Computed example of a mutant assay.
Amino acid sequence: MGHIRTRRVAAGPRAQRRRRSAAPRRAATLLLCLAGFLASGFVAGFIGFALSLERAEPILTVQADGVVVLTGGSDRIHEAAELLARGQARRLLITGVNKSTRGPEIAKLLPVSRQLFDCCIDLGYEALDTAGNAAETREWAKARGIGGSLIVVTSNYHMPRALVELSAALPGVELYPFPVVSEHMQVADWLDDASVARLIGGEYVKYLFALARTRLFPGASYAGHSTRTGAMAEVDAPSW
C-alpha cells in the first residue's frame, strides 16, 4: 500500500495578517470581560456595604475595659460619654481632637460630672485620619493597660472602616461597635438621595483601600502614625 504524502502549504500573507489582527481583539475582549467582572463586583459590594450599615443605634450592655470615640460629630462624643457614665468601661479616649480645643470646652458638652471627666477621659490630639485614630488608640491602650475589650463609637457609615483599622492596630482586643445614627444623615435614603449615595460611596472606597492595606501590609500599616510624646493629654493636665 502506498504512503499518502501530505504537504503543508504555507499560509499566505492575508491569513497571517488575519491571525495577527485577531490576537489584539482577543486580548481586548478578555480585558473588557475582566473590567465588566470587576465593575459588577464593585457595584455588588457597594450595595452590600450600603445595606449593611446600621439604621438604628444598638442597645449595648457589654462591660469593656475602655471606650474609644473617633471625632467627627458631637453626637459621637455624647454617646461615648454616656457609656462611660453608665459604668460600661473604666476609661474613655476621644481621638482626633482638634489641637485648638481644650478639655474644659469638651467637658461642658458632655453628660458626665466634672469629677468623672477629670479622672477617666483622655484626649488624643495627633490623629488626622482613621488610621491615625487606630494608632492613637493603640498607644493609649498600651499606656492604660487596656488589652481585653474596647467599645468603638463612631458614625454608622464610618464604622466598617474604623473596625478594619482598629482590628489591625489592636490584634487580640475584642471590639464592640456602637454605631451612631445621625438624624441628619439617614443611610437608608442612599437610593433616593444623591448626597447620601456619594457619602456612602466615598466611604466604601476608603473601606476597600483600608482593607487591602491592612491585609497586604499588616506590620507597616501604622508605621507613620505613631503618637508623639505629649500628644495624649489627660483631662486634668496642668496645661489647661
Rank of each mutant, 00 (worst) to 15 (best):
M1K: 12
H3E: 04
I4T: 14
T6G: 07
R7G: 08
R8D: 03
G12I: 08
P13K: 06
A15V: 03
Q16M: 10
R17H: 07
R18W: 13
R19C: 04
S21W: 01
A27K: 08
L30A: 07
L31C: 07
A35F: 04
G36W: 01
G36C: 10
F37S: 07
G41W: 09
F42R: 00
I47E: 06
G48C: 06
F49R: 05
F49N: 08
L51H: 15
S52L: 10
E54F: 00
E57Y: 08
P58Q: 00
V62H: 13
D75A: 12
D75G: 11
R86N: 12
Q88S: 07
I94T: 14
I94H: 04
K99C: 02
K99F: 00
K99M: 10
S100L: 08
R102P: 05
P104K: 07
I106L: 15
A107I: 06
K108T: 14
K108R: 15
Q115F: 03
D118F: 11
D118Y: 04
Y125F: 12
A127P: 01
A127W: 01
T130C: 05
A134D: 05
A134C: 11
A135K: 01
A135P: 10
E136M: 12
G147N: 12
I151Y: 03
T154H: 03
T154W: 10
R161E: 00
L166M: 12
L170Y: 05
E174C: 01
P179G: 04
V180N: 07
H184T: 15
A188K: 11
A188S: 14
D189H: 12
W190D: 01
L191A: 11
D192C: 02
D192P: 00
D193M: 03
I200N: 05
G202F: 02
E203Q: 14
Y204T: 05
A210V: 13
A210G: 05
F217T: 13
T227Q: 10
T227M: 11
G230Q: 14
A233N: 11
